[in-house]
Nucleic acid binder design. Structure first.
Length: 594
RNA sequence: GCCCCGGUAGCUCAGUUGGAUAGAGCAACGGCCUUCUAAGCCGUCGGUCACAGGUUCGAGUCCUGUCCGGGGUGCCA
């Protein structure tokens, strides 16, 4: 991390002065209402130095006042507000560009092999806004972890089997009439999803008939009547046929899955999502069974009177969990046990992360508890990165009520709005790369909206209010970058060849900007440590904001003296490179011109 | 019933291991393009940090209880 020169000297001084272990001093930003660049909080030092905060503050101020890097150190309560000499401030904060960008890399011993699983779509319908949040969070997290030096493997586990898949298949058999995505000119996942909807319609119709005939079932939820309907039984029979390897069913399944996966590929391409490894549930779902049977012999699990295999997790306050049904088949958690072991064997990660919605926290607690009971040491390092739902102003997204925000439609809409906004600002001549710009801006706006909030909280997605390119948005950050890029195109080439004298800088906007730049490595590391991309997104907003103020107040290419022009363009270069690095780490593209 | 997550400005959200007078954006209103891109900048307005106790020199942050919202809760995924 970026370290100011005076900090190391202060640490040495304090250790000696108070005869204590060398403290770790982490300066904070000095609040605007006080004069100073940085603040040393002596309340925090009080414990490790075993001394009175006020006394520490007094000594600290005395020491710092005489330090060559410092022009003033003012004590307010136990806060010491430090004003640095400009040479020292800019030298330490932004003097060494390579160091600034590399400082976020963790030392070798702190680097880990991380396996991160995200997306995990079902192959029965297209992806919606909820998946978009998952994809954005997962790929940004993988990228952030990589950026700080971990070795990351990103994994997708496609849920390509099960009763929900059979529903689309049954519907296609009935009403498909040999049509294909190609023949209809429809994206494959949407094509299959339409049949899933047809199935649900027919199922609801049959449920209504049954309820009319059997008044005693009127109160029962539709799902409980699944096997009472003809179409439900057909789907169930198809699932059995699939499991028994019925060639015709398998052929249809292969065909329809291929259509969906082809559609997903396009969705991922537009989002820039890439996986190092893709698993199919159809290949992994049986793996857990043997683990359970083996664990049964070792007494990890036990069989109940009715024949189901369960595990007692009362000690973890998780109750009793069934791991094999009476009929011997696997449940969800059984399948995940198998998949977890497979991933562990294949990649030997130090840490596994799942990016999955918070409605599944219980599932993962159970899964992790079972892995611990099975005796795997690495079970202590399994992590469920739970994120909140995406809701609409009207409430939850519900496929049955048609309120689901489709991912592809949303991308189209964002791109269209970005295109309009670009054209509106372009003047007489539309830019040659309009489409590329619209894609980059639209997707950055969408991703940024999803990434700037804490992953834990539910997001209220208001299509009218959320689709903005002004204020706290991705395009705002991109715009700051584009303005700097534009300056560089206009800068005389010999300007950049001059040596930089940081001492000519010193306005409050310049100081603010440099101090902000110095925080970049910390923002990256915090985002990685807390598995929270919003730390980075929020930081980039703050940096872009600091730049916009600087840009407005301080002439750069038209600054009054050559040394000032030189130093200001160099400071701008730092900002440009951090913005580019940061946006790319969040999986967003930058534009040289907007 | 029990467990988990949340509640901060009209709206959407920040708020580092507890630290200074709680901050942004949007919305509303008022300024700033003869100046390096106005997707910008500046200003005004806006707060019982859900509520009540407690711990502490100090609480939006930690503890207890209450209220409200969401999710989950042995053979759906």
């Amino acid at each position: 991390m970026t370290k100011y020169g005076f900090i190391a000297d202060l640490e040495t001084f304090l250790a000696h002065e108070f005869e204590a272990e060398r403290p770790r001093v982490t300066p904070e930003r000095c609040p605007a209402e006080f004069s100073g660049d940085l603040t040393v909080n002596c309340f925090r030092l009080a414990r490790s130095l075993r001394n009175n905060p006020m006394k520490i503050a007094t000594r600290t101020a005395e020491f710092l006042t005489q330090h060559p890097d410092i022009v003033g150190a003012e004590t307010v309560k136990a806060f010491v507000n430090v004003t640095l000499r400009p040479e020292a401030l800019f030298r330490d904060a932004v003097g060494d560009e390579a160091a600034l960008l590399e400082a976020a890399r963790l030392p070798g011993p702190d680097r880990r092999r991380v396996l991160i699983e995200f997306s995990a779509p079902n192959t029965n319908k297209p992806q919606h806004l909820g998946h978009v949040r998952n994809n954005a969070l997962g790929s940004a997290m993988a990228s952030i972890l990589r950026r700080v030096g971990h070795t990351v493997t990103s994994v997708n586990l496609i849920n390509d089997r099960g009763i929900h898949i059979c529903k689309s298949m049954v519907a296609y058999q009935r009403w498909g009439e040999g049509r294909t995505p190609a023949s209809e000119g429809i994206k494959g996942d949407h094509f299959v999803g339409d049949f899933y909807v047809l199935f649900e319609k027919e199922f609801q119709r049959q449920v209504a008939c049954i309820r009319a005939d059997r008044p005693e079932w009127r109160e029962r939820p539709a799902e409980q009547l699944f096997l009472e309907t003809e179409i439900g039984r057909t789907a169930q029979a198809m699932l059995l046929a699939w499991e028994n390897g019925d060639p015709e069913v398998r052929r249809l399944w292969e065909t329809m899955n291929a259509w969906v996966i082809e559609g997903f590929a396009e969705t991922y391409r537009r989002m820039g999502v890439v996986f190092d490894k893709v698993y199919r549930e159809s290949e992994t779902y049986t793996l857990g069974r043997n683990v359970i049977l083996e664990g049964l012999e070792r007494g990890v699990f036990h069989r109940t009177d009715d024949g189901a295999v369960v595990i007692d997790l009362d000690a973890e306050k998780l109750g009793t969990k069934v791991v094999l049904r009476r009929d011997g088949t696997s449940v969800y958690v059984t399948q995940d046990i198998g998949a977890t072991l497979l991933k562990q064997e294949e990649f030997q990660p130090d840490l596994q992360i799942w990016v999955v919605g918070d409605e599944q926290v219980y599932h993962f607690r159970v899964l992790f508890a079972i892995m611990r009971r099975l005796g795997h040491a690495w079970a202590e390092r399994l992590h469920h990165m739970a994120y909140g739902m995406v809701n609409l102003p009207s409430g939850k997204m519900k496929s049955r009520e048609g309120t689901v925000v489709d991912a592809d439609d949303l991308f189209d809409e964002m791109t269209r709005l970005a295109r309009d906004a670009t054209l509106a600002r372009a003047g007489a001549q539309a830019p040659a790369d309009l489409d590329r710009r619209a894609d980059a801006i639209g997707m950055a706006a969408l991703k940024f909206m999803l990434l700037k909030v804490n992953p834990r909280s539910a997001i209220a997605f208001d299509p009218r209010a959320s689709i903005k390119f002004e204020g706290d948005t991705g395009p705002y950050v991109m715009y700051a970058y584009a303005r700097i890029a534009s300056m560089f195109r206009k800068a005389p080439s010999d300007l950049l060849e001059q040596p930089v004298n940081w001492g000519v800088l010193g306005t409050s906007e310049e100081r603010e900007l440099a101090l902000r730049c110095a925080e970049y490595p910390g923002a990256l590391q915090r985002a990685a440590a807390e598995l929270d991309a919003s730390c980075l997104a929020g930081y980039l907003l703050d940096l872009a904001k600091a730049f916009s103020r600087f840009y407005r107040t301080c002439p750069i290419l038209s600054a009054p003296t050559p040394p000032l022009r030189r130093a200001r363009i160099e400071l701008s270069a730092r900002v440009r490179n951090i913005l580019r690095d940061g946006l790319r780490t969040l999986t967003m593209d930058v534009l040289e011109s907007m």
